[in-house]
Write a protein that binds this DNA or RNA. Sequence first.
DNA 1: CGTCGCTTTGATCATGATCAAGGGATGTGG
DNA 2: CCACATCCCTTGATCATGATCAAAGCGACG
Lengths: 270, 270
Amino acid sequence: MQALPVVQSGATVALIRKLAIRLALTPDELPILQSIFSVARSVRRHQDIVTEGKRNRVIFFVLEGLLIHYRIMRDGQRQVINIVVPGDIVGAPSCFFDGALYSVRSLTNSVVIAWPLEELFNLSGMQSQLATKIFWSFCCDAAMSAEHVVVVGRRSARERIAHFLLELLIRLQGIGLADERSYRLPFSQDVICDALGLSLAYVNRELRRLAQDGLVIISDHKVEINDVEALSALADFEDHYLRPTPIDELIAPGIAPPILAGSRRDISIR
Amino acid sequence: MQALPVVQSGATVALIRKLAIRLALTPDELPILQSIFSVARSVRRHQDIVTEGKRNRVIFFVLEGLLIHYRIMRDGQRQVINIVVPGDIVGAPSCFFDGALYSVRSLTNSVVIAWPLEELFNLSGMQSQLATKIFWSFCCDAAMSAEHVVVVGRRSARERIAHFLLELLIRLQGIGLADERSYRLPFSQDVICDALGLSLAYVNRELRRLAQDGLVIISDHKVEINDVEALSALADFEDHYLRPTPIDELIAPGIAPPILAGSRRDISIR
DNA sequence: CGTCGCTTTGATCATGATCAAGGGATGTGG
DNA sequence: CCACATCCCTTGATCATGATCAAAGCGACG
């Protein structure tokens, strides 16, 4: 990993803004988190930033790039637990265990900010609200793992693949990296097969069939979903689990979102 | 659900003590949580305490009984996300979403304490450390879902079953409900098959084979694992993900666990 | 030009699903 | 106290989804 100044790319600035919105940061919390963001690190693709078994007491704010949480089994097979997209905070739950439970690897060149877990606990004394928001984010990520269990446990190969592509669509839309029905998929099919517990040959075949049926066309690392409705029906996909109740509504139930109300887009970065 | 006074059964008292240890409660935190525990509720078996899709702003401390997190699919199939044992805190991540993501159902008669999520957020102002500990617990639960993905995604039926039985062994040992190599399993095989994404007939057959091979004998709802080592090797089971770093070590890294050091067994209940 | 990474396709195999039926408890109502 | 029902476990036969093995195509890149 190599250090580099952070507030450089337009994408990163936009992303920090999105993160601030997602965590419902108040005007006083924003600079605190921003001070953390003074130095980011670039990570070349195909590098582990967390290694299973090794002690990890750091959480990462992902600003750019795609990464995966994964485990290598004793027979060499890989299971991908989760795709990580910009705006995600990774490191939990591994940082709560003596040795990391899973490895985290970049699929593309990425930009991340490493933040010592210690700081999070410090925050919970001084700025408890902010700490709560970060913990809340971890808890919401747990919903994705739970959903993943359902996908892998009870769905056919075709449904799994459709679900995978739709989940990515919604998540990338949330950070401006997908449009209405398409996005770039900058990794190869083996990531899909390892995420879904399927063989590479079969994933390939099913993708081909989905294309023949006019549902999804993947070409040149670009996913194009012809009919999102139809594919969602096929996959039994619902996006609830990707849309938590905004944390400010939870903290102040009943009341209109207090501090940022009406001006959620006006957060200034820098 | 019917209200009943809580500090009645010996099992419950022991359990509260264990929960206090697990959360590394300090002498001042303990009474706060105990005040919550003034009224528990008994839940008859086979009842939902959380229903998928319905708004849920409550978390539950489970004192007695076994429960499951589950989802019913559109074709009627069920996927069990997680077994819940006494000492667990359930409700997350569902309580962070508009509608619950999964249902929670009792497998046996149970005793739980329902606690409004609001109180947790209140706590994060006044008693931020305690709130942090509860959030930490949620995050650690996420590790079980992640592990579940690996089990269902990349293991054979036999391995999955072995893993399931071992996970339960370790978890029940942690709360004194299992001895060295056996425990009561007070539910039928369909829970196992729905947890592991297998068919009932096949789970039954594989259980029978495990018994024939002298690895595990289940009879009359009692699981007896003949050789835990051997079964762990078969399942590629490691219990790391069930053993988080104690929260007090994380909060005060390097220092010996401060307040309860050396007297972790001396917490007084009542 | 040759190698490497990725996709594609074919042929065959096997794990685990599905369908079907019977059996042993336990419980319940007549 | 018996008849019957229900729940759960068990086992057999057959089927199919998806794995495995093998090989070829196809860029990109050095």
